[in-house]
Design a protein around this nucleic acid. Structure first.
Ligand SMILES: [Mn+2]
Ligand SMILES: [Mn+2]
Ligand SMILES: [Zn+2]
Ligand SMILES: [Zn+2]
Lengths: 124, 124
DNA sequence: TTCGTTATTGCGACAATATCGCAATAAAGT
DNA sequence: ACTTTATTGCGATATTGTCGCAATAACGAA
């Protein structure tokens, strides 16, 4: 029942942690080559999400992106920040500013998925 | 070269307009039955987007949703509002409040895609 | 109304993304 | 070392959306 530490998990974790951006399976695959299978990458990433050490965002390109949690407390995960995808270089990054969107009365938020695409400072 | 008015376009337009929600191809297909083909629905919806009478949003379920533009001026399309998807009843709606997210210096926004999922007032 | 042009549609093929089932592999405790 | 079983690889499958192309039908002109 307990989770096991594997080479693949470690590789993916390292990639996520050293990246200052959110990454997709495609990006990880390119880094890892045949060191990890596609399905495995997805499984590990989703597992990390369950563990609360990574958060998942759906890009406005419809793809899944995963980012290492930086300023998340042990149990308080606040991911109410936007993510920015550069249409030129493709980088997806977490924007620092936490936002709060007021919902209509009686509405209860569960997931926040703020996404903006455009051109980053390097590509503008 | 000029666009033509067709039965299918009219059906889709009517569905979009009378819906107080954003709809997906799947939803429209269910309404229209075999009155319109899947590819045609997508083509018409994207065409409406080009015309500026509809806006497209990517849901946190990865699907495309389309909503009739309500408070968009002729040329000034501001869709910087969040969209809410109810995890219970599935409805996707535009939230009234327009938001502005400040980007880091040098960043230039092109597309805004704010999405929140949770439970609506009817389903809470 | 009739005709000709061509925008639009239907249909199948195709592409891209993500998940699933299952046998093979390999952590980790004994 | 041995056993247990979490994890992986691989192919199959599901889902969503687009594309190519021949058939159809708007719509303006005659
Ligand atoms: Mn983030
Ligand atoms: Mn909207
Ligand atoms: Zn860039
Ligand atoms: Zn609801």
């Amino acid at each position: 029942m307990p989770k096991r530490n594997t080479k693949t998990k470690q590789l993916i974790f390292d990639s996520l942690k050293k990246a200052d951006t959110a990454v997709s399976q495609e990006i990880l695959q390119a880094e890892l080559g045949n060191a990890a299978d596609r399905a495995t990458i997805y499984r590990v990433l989703n597992s990390f999400c369950d563990d609360g050490i990574v958060h998942k965002i759906i890009g406005d390109d419809g793809k899944q992106y995963f980012a290492y949690c930086l300023n998340c407390a042990e149990k308080k995960h606040s991911h109410n920040h936007f993510h920015f995808r550069c249409l030129q270089c493709g980088k997806v990054e977490c924007l620092p500013e936490e936002v709060d969107c007021k919902l209509p009365k009686g509405y209860h938020a569960v997931n926040f998925n703020g996404f903006i695409s455009g051109y980053c400072s390097s590509c503008s």
